Computed example of a mutant assay.
Amino acid sequence: MKFLSRFPLMREQRKLTLLRRQQMLAKIARREAIRSLAEAVTEETKSAALATKSRELAVFYQSRAGKNDGESVSRLGQFSGSLAALAGRAEQSRHHALGQIERGQEALAAADNRMRRLSERAVQAQLDLESEKEQRETAHQKDVARKLQISAKDELRNSR
């Protein structure tokens, strides 16, 4: 019978333990979302800088094309075209990184919401556990008081 009286307490303790594990996993997921977001921001910054620099160099070399002989003009044109293509690829990488940033922000918001919900549930589970312990202690005290009263009545009867 004592095992059955402990069962609600064990159930509440298991619930709290499970919530704490879920909180730990949510913290890990949040850290991963932050790391991913930081990487995406870094990639976007690098890609934007590369695209800008490539465009500037392409413009610079295109402006020099008229100052040399035919072969060097052709090579400068090819180089300038390569720089323009590089700028285009860097711009595509930048747009891809912007998409990653957006998804990273969504993942971070979801992780924050999950952590908040789990924290609220953990607080409630802790309160439930404490309440269950208090109820159990109160029931135990009532049992002890009843036994003492019965024992006192028996002593009174026996002493008469």
Rank of each mutant, 00 (worst) to 15 (best):
E106N: 10
E43Y: 08
Q22K: 13
L18F: 07
M115L: 15
R6W: 14
E137Y: 06
E120D: 09
A111W: 00
S74W: 07
R30P: 05
S63L: 01
R136S: 14
A125Q: 01
F3N: 15
A65D: 09
A33G: 00
S47T: 03
A33Y: 00
A40D: 00
V59Q: 10
E155V: 09
F3P: 10
H96P: 03
R116E: 15
L118E: 03
L25D: 14
R103D: 12
S47I: 04
Q149M: 15
V41R: 15
S131I: 12
A33Q: 00
S47R: 03
A65I: 15
L76V: 00
S159R: 09
Q141V: 11
M24D: 13
Q105N: 07
L9Q: 00
A49S: 07
R11D: 03
K133N: 04
R31D: 08
Q135A: 09
S159A: 10
L108M: 01
T138P: 03
M10I: 12
S36L: 12
A85N: 13
A49N: 07
A110R: 10
R30H: 14
Q62D: 08
A51L: 04
S47H: 03
Q149A: 13
L50M: 15
L98S: 08
K147Q: 11
H96N: 14
Q62Y: 04
R89C: 05
E43A: 13
A48K: 07
E130W: 01
D128H: 06
L19N: 01
D143Y: 11
T42W: 05
R117K: 13
R116C: 09
I28H: 14
V59G: 08
A29F: 04
G77D: 06
K46D: 12
N158S: 12
A111S: 01
T42G: 11
A109L: 09
A65G: 07
L118K: 03
D69R: 12
Q78K: 13
E132W: 02
M115G: 14
R146D: 08
A87K: 01
F7A: 08
A29S: 01
R31Y: 03
T17E: 13
R11Q: 15
A85W: 11
R20F: 04
A33L: 00
Q105Y: 07
A122P: 01
L86Q: 12
E137K: 11
Q62F: 02
R75H: 11
A26E: 01
R114F: 03
Q135K: 11
L118Y: 00
H140D: 07
V123P: 04
S151M: 05
K53H: 13
A145P: 04
S82G: 15
A58Y: 05
A38P: 06
E71S: 08
G77F: 07
K2C: 02
T17D: 10
D69F: 05
G77A: 01
A90P: 01
E12D: 12
S119F: 04
D143L: 05
T138S: 12
I101G: 04
F7T: 12
R20T: 06
D154Q: 14
A40Y: 00
E130G: 02
E56Q: 08
R94F: 09
Q124I: 14
F79T: 04
